[in-house]
Simulated scan of single mutants.
Amino acid sequence: MGKRRLHSFRAGFIGAGLALSACSTEPDNQKLAEVEAQHVRDAADAGRIFCALNGEQHFQLNCTLDRIASADGQLLMLGRADAGYRRFRITSDGRGVVTADGADEARVSLMDNGLIEVAVAQDRYRLPATVRR
Score class of each variant (00 low, 15 high):
Gly2Tyr: 13
Lys3Asn: 07
Arg5Ala: 15
Leu6Tyr: 04
Ser8Leu: 13
Ser8Asp: 15
Phe9Gly: 04
Arg10Phe: 15
Phe13Pro: 01
Gly15Glu: 03
Ala16Ser: 08
Ala16Asn: 08
Gly17Met: 12
Leu20Trp: 02
Ala22Trp: 14
Ser24Glu: 08
Ser24Ile: 10
Glu26Gly: 06
Glu26Cys: 12
Pro27Thr: 03
Asn29Ile: 15
Gln30Phe: 01
Gln30Tyr: 06
Glu34Asp: 12
Glu34Pro: 04
Glu36Trp: 11
Glu36Ser: 05
Gln38Ala: 01
Gln38Asp: 06
His39Leu: 12
Val40Trp: 02
Asp42Pro: 15
Asp42Ile: 14
Ala43His: 03
Ala43Val: 02
Cys51Gly: 01
Cys51Ala: 13
Ala52Ser: 09
Asn54Ser: 12
Glu56Thr: 02
Glu56Cys: 01
Glu56Met: 02
Leu61Ile: 00
Leu65Trp: 02
Asp66Leu: 11
Arg67Val: 08
Ala69Phe: 15
Ala69Lys: 11
Asp72Pro: 05
Gly73Asp: 03
Gly73Glu: 09
Gln74Val: 09
Gln74Glu: 10
Leu75Phe: 13
Gly79Val: 05
Gly79Gln: 00
Arg80Met: 09
Arg80His: 13
Ala83Ile: 07
Gly84Cys: 07
Gly84Trp: 02
Tyr85Cys: 14
Tyr85Gln: 14
Tyr85Ile: 14
Arg86Leu: 09
Arg87Pro: 10
Arg89Gly: 00
Ile90Lys: 02
Ile90Met: 04
Ile90Gln: 01
Asp93Pro: 08
Gly94Met: 10
Gly96Asp: 01
Gly96Asn: 05
Val98Arg: 03
Thr99Ser: 05
Gly102Val: 07
Gly102Thr: 10
Asp104Phe: 13
Glu105Trp: 01
Val108Lys: 02
Leu110Pro: 06
Met111Lys: 05
Asp112Glu: 11
Asp112Arg: 10
Glu117Ala: 08
Asp123Cys: 09
Tyr125Trp: 11
Tyr125Met: 06
Tyr125Pro: 02
Leu127Ile: 13
Pro128Lys: 03
Ala129Trp: 02
Val131Cys: 01
